[in-house]
């Protein structure tokens, strides 16, 4: 296990490369989720404002 982690002396290059790979794609996968959350909040606000306007017009 220790030998494997040492990567024949190249651990300082191999593991950061793999870390970058996973971090970038974790961001790539999660970023749309956050964007979706913001978007739904914005659309909910828009719907609520429209409802208020309709009710005012009806009153």
């Amino acid at each position: 296990m220790h030998d494997w982690l040492a990567m024949g002396g190249y651990a300082q290059y191999v593991w950061p490369a793999y870390a970058v790979f996973f971090l970038v794609f974790a961001w790539d996968w999660l970023a749309p989720r956050f964007r979706r959350g913001r978007l739904l909040k914005e659309l909910r606000g828009r719907l609520a404002r429209e409802r208020v306007r309709r009710e005012k017009a009806a009153a």
Binding site: Y10, Y13, V14, A17, F21, F25, W27, D28, A31
Partner: peptide
């Protein structure tokens, strides 16, 4: 575009980490 940019960025960084040694 962002997915392609992610792949390109990883290519450049991992290539750099391979190029150094």
């Amino acid at each position: 575009a962002p997915v392609g940019a992610a792949f390109t960025l990883v290519t450049l960084i991992t290539g750099s980490l391979w190029g150094k040694p």
